[in-house]
Amino acid sequence: MNLTAAEVVEIMRLVESSHFEELSLELNGTKLNLRRGGGPVEDSPLQRPRAAALPATPAPRPAPSQQPTKPTTADPSLHEVTAPLLGTFYRAPKPGAPAFVEQGSAVESDTVIGIIEVMKLMNTVRAGVRGTVVEIFSGDGALVEFGETILRIAKSG
């Protein structure tokens, strides 16, 4: 038997609503590995390097957070949609058209929430989960970096 996309989504939902961190499933040669909350967390943060170790270089500015992403939340009922690639983010299919989603919009996992343009190539971004949009961070026409949080969804069902 083969898994359909809908079944995979259903399994993802079950894992997400369970207390398990990971699921490995093997069915007739089909392998599915799921992990909640993306990849493993980076190990211990780097020690801040000392500027004095580099004589020929101007002093580094006091480092602002290098993470371009907005403050993340640990709340498991919230899902963050991050940019799968760097590009220009559009909230609507064309200028003047209504936005794909607004704060309060109900979304399914395959609902398009925006478009990221890279050199005239349009990449659709989907919600990934079923729920309600609670916060939108990226403005229309803004540059989004790889991994940057675009919006946040309160998961349901």
């Binding site: 270089t57 101007p58 580094p60 500015r61 480092a63 290098q66 371009p68 760097l86 540059l143 970096e145 790889f146 991994g147 940057e148």
Partner: peptide
């Protein structure tokens, strides 16, 4: 840390 801005 030296650049005016970094993009990922």
């Amino acid at each position: 840390r030296l650049a005016d801005r970094t993009v990922c």
